Simulated scan of single mutants.
Amino acid sequence: MGILWTLIIGAIAGWLGAQIFKGGSLGLVGNIIVGIIGGAIGYWLLGTVLGTALIGQILTGAVGSIVLLAIINLFTRGRA
């Protein structure tokens, strides 16, 4: 059940990060991957500042996703 929650929270966080960071949508699987990695980045940056409840986890993942999408955008800017 933990893996399922990780995928759901990752998908939501990745989608939310892509909505805030325009042009960063990578599809469902990409959003899940960006959300999970973004959750790790967000936790590394913020810790539990936004809380440990579901909403806090989603917001932490979204912040990390935005950071990750910005880094991806730096390396892929100008490519078709």
Score class of each variant (00 low, 15 high):
2 G>K: 10
4 L>A: 15
4 L>F: 15
4 L>H: 09
5 W>H: 10
6 T>M: 14
6 T>Y: 04
8 I>P: 03
8 I>S: 08
9 I>Q: 05
9 I>H: 00
10 G>Y: 11
11 A>P: 05
11 A>M: 11
13 A>N: 09
14 G>T: 10
15 W>R: 15
15 W>D: 05
15 W>I: 13
16 L>C: 13
17 G>W: 01
17 G>Q: 05
17 G>H: 03
18 A>N: 07
19 Q>P: 00
21 F>K: 08
26 L>K: 13
29 V>G: 01
30 G>W: 09
31 N>M: 07
31 N>A: 14
32 I>R: 11
33 I>R: 05
33 I>L: 14
34 V>G: 03
34 V>H: 08
34 V>L: 13
35 G>C: 11
35 G>D: 07
36 I>N: 06
36 I>D: 01
37 I>K: 14
38 G>T: 13
39 G>L: 08
39 G>K: 06
40 A>W: 12
40 A>M: 10
40 A>H: 07
40 A>P: 01
41 I>D: 00
43 Y>T: 15
43 Y>Q: 15
44 W>N: 10
44 W>L: 14
44 W>I: 12
44 W>Q: 11
44 W>R: 10
44 W>P: 00
45 L>D: 04
46 L>Y: 15
46 L>H: 15
46 L>A: 09
47 G>M: 09
47 G>V: 14
47 G>F: 06
47 G>K: 14
47 G>N: 10
48 T>H: 12
48 T>I: 06
49 V>C: 05
49 V>D: 08
50 L>G: 02
52 T>K: 11
53 A>K: 09
54 L>S: 02
54 L>D: 00
54 L>I: 14
54 L>R: 03
56 G>Q: 04
56 G>M: 03
57 Q>E: 13
57 Q>C: 05
57 Q>S: 10
58 I>E: 00
60 T>E: 07
60 T>W: 09
60 T>F: 09
61 G>E: 07
61 G>H: 07
63 V>Q: 00
64 G>L: 05
65 S>H: 04
65 S>M: 02
65 S>R: 00
65 S>I: 08
66 I>H: 05
67 V>N: 01
69 L>D: 02
69 L>F: 08
70 A>W: 12
74 L>G: 11
75 F>I: 12
75 F>K: 13
76 T>D: 02
76 T>H: 08
76 T>S: 11
77 R>V: 04
79 R>S: 09
79 R>M: 10
80 A>L: 07
